[in-house]
Computed example of a mutant assay.
Amino acid sequence: MRVVMFGYQTWGHRTLQALIDSEHDVVLVVTHPKSEHAYEKIWSDSVADLAEANGIPVLIRNRPDDEELFERLENAAPDIIVANNWRTWIPPRLFDLPRHGTLNVHDSLLPKYAGFSPLIWALINGESEVGVTAHMMNDELDAGDIVRQESVPVGPKDTATDLFHKTVDLIAPVTIGALDLIASGKKDFTPQDRTQASFFHKRSLEDSRIDWTWPAADLERLVRAQSEPYPSAYAFHKGKRLEVLAAVVSEGKYGGTPGRIFYREGEGVVIVAGADARTGRNRGLALTRVRTEDGRELAASEYFTAMGGYLTSRP
Score class of each variant (00 low, 15 high):
4 V>N: 09
4 V>R: 00
4 V>S: 08
4 V>Y: 06
5 M>W: 02
8 Y>V: 12
14 R>I: 02
16 L>A: 10
20 I>R: 03
20 I>D: 06
22 S>E: 10
24 H>Q: 10
28 L>I: 09
30 V>I: 15
31 T>W: 09
32 H>Q: 13
33 P>H: 03
34 K>D: 13
36 E>P: 08
37 H>N: 14
40 E>H: 13
41 K>Q: 15
42 I>W: 02
43 W>I: 01
43 W>R: 14
47 V>E: 10
47 V>D: 11
48 A>W: 10
49 D>Y: 03
50 L>V: 10
50 L>A: 11
53 A>R: 15
53 A>D: 15
54 N>M: 11
55 G>M: 05
59 L>T: 06
60 I>M: 12
60 I>H: 11
62 N>M: 06
62 N>P: 00
63 R>D: 03
65 D>E: 12
67 E>G: 04
70 F>L: 15
72 R>I: 03
72 R>A: 15
74 E>F: 02
75 N>R: 15
78 P>A: 13
81 I>S: 01
82 V>G: 00
83 A>L: 13
83 A>E: 05
84 N>W: 07
88 T>M: 14
93 R>Y: 14
96 D>T: 13
96 D>A: 13
102 T>V: 12
104 N>K: 01
105 V>I: 15
105 V>A: 07
106 H>K: 12
112 K>Q: 14
118 P>V: 01
118 P>F: 11
120 I>D: 03
120 I>P: 00
120 I>T: 14
121 W>D: 10
123 L>H: 02
125 N>G: 10
126 G>N: 07
130 V>G: 02
138 N>F: 04
139 D>M: 06
139 D>L: 04
140 E>M: 05
149 Q>H: 02
150 E>G: 02
158 D>F: 02
167 T>R: 10
170 L>V: 09
171 I>F: 11
172 A>C: 07
175 T>H: 03
176 I>W: 03
180 D>E: 15
180 D>Y: 01
183 A>F: 00
184 S>Q: 14
185 G>V: 07
186 K>Y: 04
187 K>H: 11
187 K>I: 12
191 P>Y: 06
192 Q>V: 07
193 D>Q: 02
196 Q>Y: 01
203 R>K: 13
214 W>H: 09
220 E>R: 08
222 L>C: 08
223 V>C: 07
223 V>G: 02
223 V>S: 07
224 R>I: 05
227 S>G: 07
227 S>H: 06
228 E>I: 08
229 P>N: 03
230 Y>M: 13
238 K>G: 13
239 G>K: 08
244 V>I: 15
246 A>Q: 10
249 V>P: 03
252 G>F: 05
252 G>D: 09
255 G>K: 04
260 R>F: 14
262 F>E: 10
264 R>Y: 15
268 G>N: 04
271 I>F: 03
272 V>K: 03
273 A>R: 04
274 G>Y: 14
274 G>R: 08
280 G>V: 04
282 N>D: 08
283 R>V: 02
285 L>M: 08
285 L>K: 09
289 R>I: 00
294 D>P: 00
295 G>H: 04
297 E>K: 04
297 E>I: 15
299 A>I: 03
300 A>D: 00
300 A>P: 00
301 S>N: 11
303 Y>K: 04
303 Y>I: 12
305 T>R: 13
306 A>I: 05
307 M>H: 01
307 M>R: 15
310 Y>A: 04
311 L>F: 05
312 T>D: 00
